[in-house]
Structures are given as structure tokens and as C-alpha cells.
Design a protein around this nucleic acid. Structure first.
Length: 206
DNA sequence: TGCAAACCATAAC
DNA sequence: GTTATGGTTTGCA
């Protein structure tokens, strides 16, 4: 039986779905109903039980979701259960979760590391059930545009993605390579994206 | 800039 | 099998 748990902090709600000490899904939204609704689109109603009193693991997982949301980074201490995804999608998600706070990667950059094409990577992001644990908000277009955001859950929108990136500013100025199971992956300081967006002034309309 | 064609893994049929 | 569908990319006018 899957355990769903949602914690509301002020005007934002964080939620996880857990099973056997692993996270099967995570999300955030405007309130508890919002988050639960997104979970119900991923799992059948009968397979999931909403916990009023969370297991210690669920509590820890929700904490992690909140940390990432607040821009504090990923400790990568909670295991993810990716088995309900296609093998290629799993590779993409694992590669993306290696992008450090303060950096972004392009769809094509991920594709280069895990194989396949940029478009396929975008598809994998769109089905990502682990927002923001798998930081799909750090994946942008090769021209340093935002790309898209908000596939599986209710929490979508480029505005949200933009806010994420602003919180994750760390003042880096040089690109670097991170290693993935497929090979090296080039990541860029999030500032590259932000300065370009602010210059183009398009972000004001998001 | 803007547009069109190539790209690639999935899900649905 | 085949088709439709994207959170893209690249080249060319």
C-alpha cells in the first residue's frame, strides 16, 4: 500500500508518496487538495492511502521536498523508486538529479550524456513525478531560454520554474562538467539563464 | 529573428 | 506495427 502524506506550510503544500522506504512520487501545490489531486492522477485511488500520521520516512522525504523548494539543495538522502518508468526515462531522471544547485543543463546536454535526443529528454521531464526532488526546473533550452515546466502535477508554469532558479542563485560564473552514468554532462551557472531572461524582458509576461 | 524540417522515446490505438 | 505527440535543436532565409 502506497503512503501519501502532505504537509502544509503557510500558503504552500508539499507532498510525497512512499512505499517501502522509497519515494514513488513527490509534488508541491497551493494546498493539500491540490497536491493529492496530482497524486491521484498518477496512482489508482485504491492503491494509495492518505496518512494523517506520517511514517518517519515520509516525514523525512517531505522535509527534503521543502528543502529543495526553498533552494537549499538536494541532500540526495532519500531513495527514489523509479521502476514504474521506462528504462530510458530512468536514465534521464538519474542524470538530471545530478545537476547541482546553482547550475542548469540543457535538454541537449542531458541527451548527450544519457544518449537519445533532446526531444526525448523533454518527454521524460514532462512525465517526471518527482518534482522538485528530481530538479527538472534546472533543465533549460540550449539557447538559455526556460523551455517548459509542469507536466505531471498541478504545480506547473514557467513562472514557478523561474522563481526556482532565482532561489538557487549561488554566484557561480563558470560552466563545469558533472559525471553521470552515461558520461560527462556540461552544466552552466543559473545566472546565465537569469541574466539573459531579464535582458530580454520576456519574463515579465510569464 | 522567425520558420521549417529533422529528431527520438513513449503512449495510445 | 503505426501514428501522434511533445518541456528541442539546428540550419537557413
Amino acid at each position: 500500500m502506497l503512503e501519501a502524506y502532505v504537509e502544509v506550510m503557510g500558503n504552500i503544500a508539499f507532498g510525497v508518496v512512499c512505499e517501502n522506504e522509497a519515494v514513488c512520487a513527490s509534488n508541491f501545490g497551493i494546498d493539500e487538495a491540490d497536491v493529492l489531486q496530482s497524486f491521484q492522477r498518477m496512482f489508482s485511488l485504491g492503491a494509495m492511502q492518505v496518512a494523517t500520521k506520517p511514517s518517519s520516512f515520509a516525514e523525512k522525504a517531505v522535509n527534503e521536498v521543502r528543502n529543495v523548494y526553498e533552494g537549499k539543495g538536494v541532500s540526495q538522502s532519500v531513495p527514489l523508486n523509479l521502476t514504474r518508468f521506462a528504462p530510458y526515462t530512468q536514465r534521464v531522471l538519474r542524470a538530471v538529479s545530478r545537476v547541482p544547485v546553482g547550475y542548469v543543463v540543457s535538454y541537449g546536454g542531458v541527451a548527450q550524456a544519457v544518449g537519445g535526443g533532446a526531444r526525448a529528454v523533454g518527454n521524460a521531464m514532462a512525465t517526471n513525478c518527482f518534482a522538485p526532488l528530481v530538479p527538472c526546473h534546472r533543465v533549460v533550452t540550449s539557447s538559455l531560454g526556460l523551455g517548459g515546466y509542469g507536466g505531471a502535477g498541478n504545480c506547473g508554469g514557467l513562472r514557478v520554474k523561474f522563481e526556482f532558479l532565482k532561489r538557487e542563485k549561488r554566484g557561480y560564473s563558470q560552466p563545469k562538467d558533472v559525471s553521470t552514468e552515461g558520461g560527462l554532462m556540461r552544466v552552466f551557472p543559473v545566472e546565465f539563464v537569469l541574466t539573459k531572461l531579464e535582458k530580454s524582458a520576456i519574463w515579465k509576461h510569464i
